[in-house]
Nucleic acid binder design. Structure first.
Lengths: 253, 253
DNA sequence: CGGAGAGTTGAGAAACCTCAAAGCAGGTGG
DNA sequence: CCACCTGCTTTGAGGTTTCTCAACTCTCCG
């Protein structure tokens, strides 16, 4: 039972290393399941259209733009955000290399959120028509594409769980652990990393105000759970962070 | 709480869902776009395997169960939920006829949530292997499946916005308007309908406690926005409800 | 060196939750 | 058919968490 819950939360919060083959991107380690043949991989390579570079603050696409392609992130960091007509904005995700962005636009052929580079970044464009065409020929690719979309659904539902039933400390602990896990999956240290986003953006993602994010980080630091300096984070008591996420209202620190 | 759960378990066990052949789930109205040819529709009908009936409280599937099929709801109402280890639940969605359920399980081949009937219901089972196979042959179906999954992603992101940046009144107004819209799309009145879920379940879905849901509904009623009696709801001032959702913290009623 | 944006910290206010009690509705058994 | 029981709902009072507003500091760049 305990285990189920932790699994759920982990899945919930994690951005799975999703993806589609893109050999010109450095995505092989994240994107290619073992069960593609070499011949299939050569076919996959034909669909990776353009490689594009973005500066910090550039928009990969904007809400309302016509949909044509998915994007696989090669390097860098992005955020996606939805805008409410009254000016409110909500960050819906942070994406890192190997992750696929733009899945929301398939439903209406129009992008429903903005994607913004949080640092200088490169992406591979994956024309969606070509992707669909190829996945009709390659069942492995078809299944893979479905898994990517489904994983996004699971991820979003995990964030709903987080937003709907966790307190500020739990949300932030879950967020840090999720980043840690994703960095680890990419060969970086799970214990020390640099945040690419502001407190404001973290808060928007977690349904908190930036002051609450700042206070909670300070509180974690006072209690020797983490070490923060600006945007660099070190997780110094992973077990306690995990406990904080796994258990609901208890966890008195 | 404990007892409710036992009840549901008992009913689930004592009424095994009947399996009947299903020629045309009402897939055509809600699930399928107009642009299928008659020949294609005949092909589609071959994949709708079984029609199953569920009693109120029955589980369509449970978290952890092996994934084999998606389900199209023919009649009735379902909720999907993830369970915390302490017995509390987080509702991730309410589904009504014409909607597809089970998309979360594609990613890992294991269901990540429970689906529970909120009233006596019927579903069509759509074996996912057959669906993939057929969608390799019918590009229209392929695109449609992608759109369904993408729509789920967009829906979830909308809920993230709601949970992350709306106050109780706004959340509840958005919830009622969403139900209204979905009833209208099915030919029912957009102004008067019956809630199939408890205050507790609404609260879980909206990230609120049941008392807050109840209080907010009472407040809406005092201010002549809606008329509530038990589970029957009448929206009597749609414009103001819409304004409540569209605008920031103003909206003084 | 100076300005702008980002981050921290404090105090008071607002929103929501918790606990508690009482009123209702719907199903079940006598 | 009624009485009862159980679970759902409403309402109140007080507590907690998070937000708001504000002042100040820090860091990064030009």
């Amino acid at each position: 039972m305990q285990h189920t819950h932790n699994n759920q939360v982990q899945r919930a919060i994690s951005f799975p290393p999703a993806a589609v083959a893109c050999s010109s991107c450095n995505l092989r380690e994240f994107c290619l399941p073992a069960d593609f043949t070499e011949a299939e991989i050569r076919q996959l390579e034909t669909l990776t259209g353009l490689k594009r570079a973005y500066r910090r603050g550039d928009y990969l696409y904007r809400s309302g733009a016509r949909f044509a392609s998915l994007y696989a992130i090669r390097t860098g960091f992005f955020k996606t955000q939805v805008l409410h007509e009254d000016g409110r904005e909500q960050v819906t995700g942070f994406q890192m290399p190997g992750e696929i962005i733009g899945l929301d636009a398939i439903s209406t052929d129009v992008h429903t959120c903005d994607a913004v580079a949080l640092e200088d970044s490169e992406v591979c464009e994956l024309p969606f028509n070509r992707l669909e065409e190829l996945s009709r020929q390659l069942p492995t690719l078809q299944r893979h594409l479905h898994k990517i979309m489904s994983r996004e659904i699971v991820r979003d539902q995990g964030i709903m769980l987080l937003l709907g039933s966790m307190r500020a400390e739990e949300r932030l602990a879950a967020f840090l652990l999720n980043l840690s896990q994703r960095f680890a999956a990419r060969g970086y240290s799970p214990n020390a990393f640099r945040l690419r986003m502001t407190r404001q953006e973290i808060g928007s993602y977690l349904g908190l105000k930036l002051e609450t994010v700042s206070r909670t980080l300070s509180y974690f630091q006072e209690n020797r759970l983490i070490d923060v300096h600006n945007k660099s984070i070190e997780l110094i008591d992973m077990p306690r962070l995990l406990r904080l996420v796994g258990q609901q209202p208890a966890a008195p620190l």
